[in-house]
Write a protein that binds this DNA or RNA. Structure first.
Length: 468
DNA sequence: GTAGGGTTAG
């Protein structure tokens, strides 16, 4: 039976092999595990009635399509042949498969397939526009829209937000309707990647295309605008959403409050407070996030007193106090040089709230001690952290090294530099700059020059960063 | 199926 599949044995999951490979492009004696005997019988029937010779996996796929084989079977063959032969099917055949899957409403399978494609470098090098062109040749509008929608999400979820953005634009050109949730995925990816201009474009375009924006869409857009300090615009979006019948929730208000706290100019905490009033008046009580945002905001505003008042209010209202709450406060106290109070608060946190200081809590206090030139106290905590199984990162090492250097304890600094290397951590420009400055301040110009060369050879020093 | 809060050295 030249050029035909035939069964090899009849036990267990039915295997079969390609025969007569001499005249074919199919590797010799490849055993295919089909899931069931029934599946195999169906495939064989399709092939026997439609073909006499098999030339390549691609031909088989085409023949399966043409014979009207059921989609499940075609997909099995598709997956298997890609795995076994490393076949790269043409875009046309892939589209054909996606469309039959869509027609069969096998959306989960489409999602899985697309995710697999998008993880593949060679698929991503194919321009999005050519993929859309291939898509447009078959299937109905509804299915095409759903596939485009899933493709966009696949790009976004697999760290290809630009391709997702591209897919969003092409979908518009082809008049394909995308879902809000998918667009939200894209919006969020753009905001996370600080591509706010892109996010604003998507937002406007969603409105143009009559994709009904929901609460999540608005919250993401507000976050994006806040992230780049466009606070007025963010407030305007809240008005827009209200007029479109979408009520802001705690996340909306918290995002805007945080925006003012972090990006606002003078009077930002006053503004933040005003938004809080709006929020409460709209019937949305301040939650854990709100309090934490305000506490951190006041701390960064160097107003620890106000932060403490918010903290008290938080406890009065029975809102859950967390490690984040304490870390923000401890950070505020450290930044003001109130180390004793910071330590007291940390102890209070452990005894009263049963919370365990984590890496960030430690970092904050270590940095506080270093800033106060209390390098031994910083070191105690540093060692403590290591004892607890936490691993200092490069920033923490650099903080300690810099403090040692500024205290004219270059030897201790170099000892830490060495332990950094032992831990497999790479010193960076900041490390070297501190050490070089330390050597200089001890009058070791030669040593400083040597180290500068080491640093330069690693390509680390930028001209404007040279410290002497 | 998607959205908000704490540390980043010189």
């Amino acid at each position: 039976m030249p050029g035909k599949f035939f069964p090899r044995n009849k036990l267990g999951p039915m295997p079969f092999c390609f025969a007569d490979t001499a005249t074919q492009n199919v590797p010799h004696n490849i055993v295919v595990e089909l899931i069931s005997k029934q599946q195999w019988l169906r495939l064989r029937t399709h092939l026997e009635t439609t073909t006499t010779t098999i030339t390549s996996p691609t031909t088989v796929l085409q023949q399966l399509f043409d014979s009207g084989a059921d989609t499940e079977l075609v997909l099995r063959y598709f997956d298997w042949s890609r795995r076994e032969f490393k076949v790269k099917y043409t875009l046309e055949l892939i589209c054909r498969l996606l469309h039959s899957l869509a027609a069969a409403k096998m959306y989960l399978k489409i999602r899985n397939l697309l995710n697999g494609f998008v993880k593949d470098e060679s698929f991503c090098s194919v321009s999005v526009s050519s993929i859309f062109r291939a898509f447009s040749s078959c299937g109905g509008d509804h299915d095409r829209s759903r596939i485009a929608d899933m493709l966009m999400v696949a790009y976004v979820k697999n760290m290809r937000p630009h391709l997702g953005f591209e897919a969003f634009k092409r979908a518009g050109e082809y008049g394909l309707k995308l879902s809000v949730v998918s667009c939200n995925h894209l919006l969020n990816a753009l905001v996370k990647g600080s591509e706010i201009v892109g996010a604003e474009y998507v937002y406007k375009e969603m409105r143009n295309r009559k994709i009904e924006l929901d609460l999540v869409s608005f919250n993401i857009v507000i976050h994006g605008l806040c992230k780049v300090g466009k606070l007025k615009e963010a407030s305007d979006v809240i008005e827009d959403m209200k007029s479109l019948g979408v009520s802001p929730d705690a996340i909306t208000y918290n995002t805007l409050i945080d925006g003012y706290c972090k990006r606002g100019k003078i009077g930002r905490m006053y503004r933040a407070d005003a938004i809080l009033k709006d929020m409460v008046e709209s019937g949305i009580p301040a939650d854990e996030f709100t309090f934490n945002i305000l506490i951190d905001g006041f701390c960064k505003d160097r107003n620890v007193l106000a932060a403490m008042k918010v903290f008290d209010e938080m406890k009065n209202q029975g809102v859950k106090v967390s490690l984040i709450t304490y870390s923000s406060l401890i950070n505020g106290l450290c930044a003001c040089g109130k180390l004793d109070e910071a330590i007291a608060l940390r102890n209070q946190m452990i005894t009263c709230s049963g919370l365990k200081p984590d890496f960030i809590t430690h970092s904050v206090i270590i940095k506080g001690f270093c800033k106060q030139k209390m390098v031994d106290r910083a070191r105690e905590l540093f060692d403590d952290l290591v004892k607890q199984g936490m691993v200092p990162n490069v920033v923490m090492y650099n903080t300690m090294i810099d403090a040692y250097c500024k205290s004219r304890r270059t030897e201790d600094a170099f000892a830490l530099h060495d332990s950094m290397l032992e831990r497999g951590m790479l010193p960076n420009a900041a490390t070297y700059n501190s050490l070089i400055a330390g050597l200089c301040s001890e009058g070791d110009t030669e040593g400083a020059k040597r180290l500068e060369n080491v640093s330069k050879n690693k390509g680390l020093i930028k001209a404007d960063l040279v410290t002497y």
